[in-house]
Amino acid sequence: MSALDELRATAHPIRLRLLSLLTGAAMSAAEAGRELGLSQATASYHLRALERVGLVEVVELVRIRGGEAKRYRHVSSARPFDPSPAPRDPSSPGATRPDDQEERAQYIEALIDELRRRSGRRAVGPQLSTDAELWVDDETWQRVVRHVGQASALLHARARPPRTPGTSPVSMTAALFALRRP
C-alpha cells in the first residue's frame, strides 16, 4: 500500500485511537470497542479499514463463545525509522500531488480532533508544548526530524496494554514538515 492509502486510512479520529491502543496490546474488535467506548461493529469496521492498508494485522485467533475472534496489532510502529528527507521537487516521484492535499487536510483535522480530546485529560507531570515556524539549515532540520522520529519509535516500542501496573497514559503528537519558500 502507498503512503497515500495509509494517510486516507488514518484520516479519522477513531482510527488514530485504535492505532494508539493496538500499539501496546493485541485486541479483538470487541475488546478495543470496550476500551474506547465504541460498539464492536464500529471498532470492527475501522479495524478492517486499517488492516486493508497494512497498519494493523491479525496476530492471533481466539475462541470466544463457540466462535473465533481476531486479535489485531498495530505493526507499522515497529518499522525502523527512516530519517531520509521526502522529495522536495513537486515533480519528483513520491512528492505530494495537488489531489493529495484534501487527504492530507483530512488527516490533519483528525489529528486536531484527537489532540483536543487528549488535552482534556492532561495530568500533572513532565510536559512539553512547542510551536515554531523557523528558518534553519538542512543539517539542523535533519537532526530534529531524526530525534523526534527516534522518540516516537521509543514510545511505540515501550507501549504496554492499557492500565498495566506501573504505567501511565501519555500523549505525543508531532507534525514536522518543511515549508515551501514564500
Rank of each mutant, 00 (worst) to 15 (best):
T10N: 06
R15Y: 11
A9F: 12
L36P: 13
L19Y: 00
S20D: 10
A29P: 00
H12I: 08
H12N: 13
H12T: 03
S20Q: 03
L16S: 07
L16H: 06
L16P: 08
P13H: 13
G24C: 10
G33I: 07
H12S: 01
A32M: 00
S20F: 10
L36V: 01
L19C: 15
L21F: 11
E31F: 05
I14T: 00
A30G: 13
A29Q: 09
R15S: 01
L7M: 15
G33Q: 07
L36D: 05
A32T: 07
T23K: 10
A9M: 08
S28E: 10
I14H: 08
I14C: 07
L22C: 02
I14G: 04
G24V: 15
A30D: 03
L19T: 13
P13N: 13
L16V: 06
I14S: 01
L22R: 07
L18I: 01
L36N: 11
A9V: 04
T10Q: 05
A9T: 06
S20M: 02
L7P: 02
S20L: 07
R8F: 03
R15W: 05
L21D: 13
L21H: 05
A25E: 06
M27H: 03
R8H: 02
A25G: 08
G33P: 08
G24E: 15
M27L: 15
R17S: 13
A11Y: 09
